[in-house]
Amino acid sequence: MATPPPTPPIGRLKINVDGSFRSESADGGIGVVVRNEFGTCIASMAHYFPHVLSTTHMEAEAFRAGILLAIREGWDAFDLESDCSLVVSVLQQNMEDRSDIGCILDDCKSYLTSFHSFQIRHVFRKANGVAHHLAHLASLNYLDNI
């Protein structure tokens, strides 16, 4: 897998998402960071979730939050990146997911049909660091709705 460039091409945005799960308390958080072609952060989000199912649940919620942010802001061309290869793979396929997070992934797929140009890509955690830290802090309930 080739490492994606740190910034998106001109006219596109890069949306990095990540989820965090704390098994001892069954809560979690998500982090989203959006950068323009200059690498400037133009938006970020962190949100705490009580009563979480799993790490994958939080990863899927992070994708949904990133996509909904793009819809709300009217962004039409973006690269959506995560270090969760499982969710990336599911969203790249046109198959029904019957897992306990299938409805979240179905929402994501449905929302994505409204965009003109997007790519979903797996990246290593090092390339997803800011979203990872936001998700971790949100899972501790230190950050919410930033």
Results as ranks from 00 to 15, higher is better:
Ala2Leu: 11
Ala2His: 13
Thr3Gly: 04
Pro6Lys: 04
Thr7Cys: 11
Thr7Gly: 05
Ile10Ala: 13
Arg12Asp: 10
Ile15Asn: 08
Asn16Tyr: 04
Val17Thr: 02
Val17Asp: 03
Asp18Glu: 05
Asp18Gln: 06
Arg22Ala: 01
Glu24Tyr: 11
Ala26Gly: 06
Gly28Ile: 05
Gly31Tyr: 04
Val34Ser: 02
Arg35Asn: 02
Asn36Arg: 09
Glu37Phe: 06
Glu37Met: 04
Phe38Gln: 15
Gly39Asn: 00
Thr40Arg: 12
Thr40Phe: 03
Ser44Met: 14
Met45Gln: 12
Ala46Cys: 11
Tyr48Lys: 05
Tyr48Ser: 07
Tyr48Asp: 10
Pro50Trp: 03
His51Gly: 11
His51Glu: 15
Thr56Lys: 12
Met58Phe: 06
Met58Ile: 02
Ala60Ser: 10
Glu61Asp: 00
Glu61Val: 04
Ala62Thr: 07
Arg64Glu: 12
Ala65Val: 08
Ala65Ile: 01
Ala65Tyr: 07
Ile67Pro: 00
Leu68Trp: 11
Leu68Ala: 09
Ile71Val: 15
Arg72Pro: 00
Glu73Asn: 11
Ala77His: 12
Phe78Ser: 04
Asp79Tyr: 06
Asp79Pro: 01
Asp79Trp: 10
Leu80Asn: 03
Asp83Ser: 05
Cys84Ala: 08
Val88Ser: 04
Ser89Val: 03
Ser89Gly: 13
Gln92His: 04
Gln93His: 08
Gln93Ser: 11
Asn94Glu: 14
Met95His: 12
Met95Asn: 13
Glu96Gln: 07
Glu96Val: 09
Asp97Val: 03
Arg98Gly: 14
Ser99Glu: 01
Asp100Thr: 13
Ile104Asp: 08
Leu105Asp: 01
Cys108Gly: 04
Lys109Met: 06
Tyr111Glu: 11
Phe115Cys: 06
Phe115Val: 03
His116Gln: 13
His116Phe: 09
His116Trp: 09
Gln119Glu: 14
Gln119Tyr: 10
Arg121Thr: 14
Lys126Phe: 07
Ala127Gln: 15
Gly129Met: 10
Ala131Lys: 01
Ala135Glu: 08
His136Lys: 15
His136Ile: 10
Tyr142Ile: 14
Asp144Asn: 15
Asn145Met: 13
Asn145Gln: 14
Ile146Phe: 11
